[in-house]
Design a protein around this nucleic acid. Structure first.
Length: 278
DNA sequence: ATGGCAGCGTCACGCTGA
């Protein structure tokens, strides 16, 4: 079972990139962020033609998440719902389409687009902290003991110095402040760990390069796109990698896909193909 | 230290992202 996460920065602009990438990598599940399209305008057909199922939770111009899966998407949940009951910011927290989750071949997959926060003095920073607090309640509600859980997405947080290109300068600023880091760690709880760090302890591995300042040419990125696995899935993790090549293409997203390979037996989908070696 | 690049909505540039 291969699960991938990719902030595509507009699914319509990046459509050929995404379709070509699916043909090349053949993941079982692709979680998209920043689709930037309202649901009626989402380009479903090319994905359906490739035999993928699609669930979308989008809005016009901003945000938007989707799940694209070779196996059925069951028990699909759009956004925070019950977790917002009693929250004074419920309406605002629900208006931005940043969360979609489904049960995929018995694995609970959560796809997130965490708010950026803009700057520490911005109202958007408080929104980010409130959103992460709601995420804590959401993950607490959605996870079931002894069931596999995989939480993926664009977290807009570099959790550790090794996830930043210049930690001395950037630590404490937006996407690297103590409060948002702590809020994310609390939201993830005690059972979820970063799949990438199971395999790669070193710095210098990025998932996002700013379009500006020649960040790509200078290889000054951040590692802000993560895949978190609970203990029972960690035991099955074979690899986790960032597909940096995608960022080097013509008219790329500013993010690269992140992929995890799990030794999880898929139900036979009937076409006789096996997606991985065992 | 600052700004830079890209996508969207709407059609000249402002807003937003990260």
């Amino acid at each position: 079972m291969q699960i991938a996460s990719w902030n595509v920065n507009s699914v319509r602009t990046r459509l050929t990139h995404v379709l070509n990438w699916l043909d090349q990598k053949k993941p079982d599940l692709l979680a998209l962020q920043e689709t930037k399209v309202d649901d009626p305008q989402f380009p479903l057909e090319p994905f359906l033609q490739k035999g993928y199922q699609v669930q979308i939770h989008g809005q016009k111009a901003y945000n938007g998440v989707a799940l694209i899966s070779r196996t059925p998407l069951e028990d699909v949940r759009m956004g925070f719902i019950g977790e917002l009951i009693g929250d004074p910011d419920a309406e605002e927290l629900g208006a931005q389409k940043r969360v979609i989750s489904a049960l995929v071949d018995g694995i609970r997959v959560v796809n997130l687009y965490v708010p950026n926060g803009s700057s520490l003095s911005s109202d958007k920073y408080n929104y980010k902290l409130a959103w992460l607090s709601c995420l804590e309640r959401y993950i607490g509600a959605i996870q079931t003991r002894d069931e596999p859980l995989c939480v993926v997405g664009d977290f807009n947080i570099g959790l550790e110095a090794r996830d930043l290109p210049d930690p001395d300068r950037l630590s404490g600023g937006i996407m690297a402040s103590d409060r948002e880091r702590a809020a994310l760690l609390v939201a993830l709880g005690s059972d979820l760990q970063d799949a990438f760090r199971l395999f790669e302890p070193n710095s210098g591995h990025w998932s996002w390069w700013d379009y500006r300042s020649g960040a790509w040419d200078r290889d000054r990125g951040w590692r802000i796109d993560h895949i978190y696995l609970n203990e029972m899935l960690r035991e099955l993790a074979r690899s986790c990698s960032i597909d940096k090549e995608e960022r080097g293409r013509i008219q790329p997203s500013d993010h690269a896909p992140v992929c995890v390979d799990l030794a999880w037996e898929l139900e036979d989908d009937g076409d006789g193909e096996d997606a991985y070696d065992t």
